[in-house]
């Protein structure tokens, strides 16, 4: 193709470029290979007996499974709410000028991040043998009231406590990073205006830290949804444990596990949408802020 000199005429806007684009044969080959693989997978979904969709349909909305889903949901919620609350306290302790406070917080993080969640949950399941009784009284002195731990801490409580205490350790680090990310000048400006330390933290520092805290916390929440399956160690009847209980009698293992996966996918998808709107809310006042509408992060977004 030759370029005519008279395309650009003086005094007239130049003609828009019409060039033959570069061809990418490699992309076509890759697309063909992937299409074949997808076709094979879809074929497998429809024809495989092992998946047994009828069996899945039968149990998908059965009472025990729905109860398992409910338990998974409230465990996730309780673990995140408790984890965030305790995590903020631990983060503030870590940032405290008091060496005892920051030391205690450090040891806490060291233990709960240094041991597997599954093992911690096994311990919670056997908490009665670690602390046979729980009481209120004078330290090292007389107790006013005493309960048997086994009766006080039921499976639901052991499961949620186990998840909360573990999550708090991770949340503490996320919150601390968030607080440290806020420019020091912000605290100075607030102090110079006569705001108290609590006001400064609540009104100035934390809202800005949230921008750094929310995305990893959303990821933590989605991780938590899946980690609840570990409380089978306690044991507590959440979704995965329920699926196991069902296939223990029907011997149809794969259909029940795939059914559980579908439930997890539905819930985590809803959570990802919620995370998107939360992130948008806390990016107020930044260049990426509320004015700009970003697309849902399904492609290369913030989800794990």
């Amino acid at each position: 193709m030759t370029v005519d000199n008279d395309v650009v005429e003086p005094g007239r806007p130049p003609e828009a470029i019409k060039a033959v684009p570069v061809r990418h044969p490699g992309r076509w080959v890759a697309a063909a290979v992937i299409l074949v693989l997808v076709a094979m997978f879809v074929h497998f979904l429809f024809t495989s007996d092992a998946l047994d969709w009828a069996e899945q349909r039968k149990y998908m909305f059965s009472d025990p499974v729905l109860k398992g889903v409910r338990n998974t949901l409230w465990l996730t919620l309780a673990a995140m709410v408790g984890g965030v609350a305790l995590g903020i306290v631990l983060a503030l302790m870590r940032l405290s000028a008091n060496p005892l406070l920051s030391g205690v917080a450090w040891v806490y993080l060291w233990f709960f991040r240094g041991t597997p969640l599954y093992t911690q949950l096994l311990i919670w399941g056997a908490i009665g043998s670690l602390f046979p009784t729980v009481g209120i009284g004078v330290p090292f002195g007389p107790e006013f009231d005493t309960w048997k731990t086994q009766e006080l801490v039921n499976a639901a409580m052991a499961a949620s406590l186990g998840l909360i205490l573990n999550e708090a350790a991770y949340m503490a680090e996320i919150v601390r990073a968030g607080i440290l990310s806020v420019d020091e000048g912000q605290q100075e400006a607030a102090s110079a205006l006569g705001m108290s330390r609590l006001q400064t933290m609540r009104r100035i520092v934390l809202p800005q830290a949230m921008r750094v805290i929310v995305p990893p916390t959303g990821n933590e929440a989605i991780s938590m949804l899946k980690n609840t399956s570990l409380v089978a160690a306690v044991p507590y009847a959440e979704l995965t444990f329920t699926a196991q209980t069902i296939y223990a009698s029907t011997y149809k293992i794969i259909p029940m596990l795939v059914m559980a996966c579908l439930w997890y996918l539905v819930i985590s998808s809803v959570m990802m949408v919620g995370q998107y709107y939360l992130e948008r809310y806390y990016s107020k006042g930044t260049s990426k802020g509320a004015r700009e509408r970003r697309r849902l992060p399904f492609m290369g977004g913030g989800a794990p």
Binding site: A192, G194, S196
Partner: peptide, 23 residues
């Protein structure tokens, strides 16, 4: 801290980097 904060209310300060609250 509370008393220091009370003293600072009498004194306004403007910073080189503005330090407005961005949110």
């Amino acid at each position: 801290d509370r008393e220091v904060a009370a003293q600072r209310r009498e004194i306004g300060m403007v910073f080189q980097r503005f330090n407005l609250f961005p949110h």
